Amino acid sequence: MKDLSGFLGAALQFAALDIAIRKGMEDGLEEVARRIEQTAKDEIGHYQPAIGGFSEWAQLAESTEADKARKGFEPNAPLERTGQFRESWEHKTEGLEAVIGSKDERAPFFEFGTSKMPPRPVLGPAVAINGNFIKKIIGRATVNGFVGGAAIHHSLGYDDIV
């Protein structure tokens, strides 16, 4: 048993809890970012339905399909020709921040459309598709942080300190 009490004991308890919650949240955020990245990659090459305020993907123009056929690419595979766009998606997490996106310079044009091309959003729908998963993982990470913080507090012998 540690010989600590009062404010010092409470401060140690809160510090242990804060560290455990933060670690749980960071781990959960990494899992969420990885899932959103994979979902974005999986959407490419398939017509997507409307979801979460994002419209369904419009059919490719006949001229686009004809051009793809001439070049030997798969028909009816929006945003997919060589696989380059799919492979350009990645994520990075640092602390409690995540960045998920494509390094392909065409990504904003695909996501938001242009005057000649309808939008075919990838990132927004990937987040919407995973809404329940995100809530579950972040919720679980928070609970695990609380439980982990309590376990750390217990392992340090601070159970009786208030």
Rank of each mutant, 00 (worst) to 15 (best):
A15Q: 09
D18K: 14
I19Y: 05
I19A: 08
A20E: 01
R22W: 04
E26H: 04
E26K: 07
D27W: 00
D27V: 13
G28D: 07
G28Y: 02
E30M: 11
E37H: 07
E37M: 06
Q38F: 05
K41T: 13
D42T: 02
I44L: 05
G45M: 05
H46Q: 05
Q48S: 13
A50N: 10
A50R: 07
I51Q: 10
F54A: 14
F54N: 03
S55R: 14
S55M: 09
A58R: 08
A58P: 02
A58S: 08
Q59E: 14
L60T: 07
E65C: 07
A66N: 04
D67K: 07
D67W: 09
K68A: 03
F73D: 14
F73W: 12
E74R: 14
N76M: 12
P78K: 05
P78V: 06
L79N: 08
T82C: 09
F85E: 04
W89K: 05
W89S: 03
W89I: 11
E90T: 15
H91M: 02
K92Q: 11
E94Q: 15
E94K: 15
G95P: 09
A98P: 15
A98M: 03
G101W: 01
K103T: 15
D104L: 04
E105K: 15
R106K: 15
A107T: 00
A107I: 07
P108Y: 01
F109E: 00
F110H: 02
E111R: 00
E111K: 03
T114W: 06
S115E: 15
P119R: 00
L123F: 06
L123A: 03
G124A: 13
P125K: 10
I129R: 04
N130L: 02
N130G: 03
N132C: 00
N132T: 12
F133W: 06
F133E: 02
K135H: 14
I138H: 01
G139V: 12
G139F: 13
R140H: 10
A141C: 10
T142A: 10
T142E: 13
V143S: 01
V143F: 04
N144R: 14
G145S: 04
F146V: 05
G148N: 09
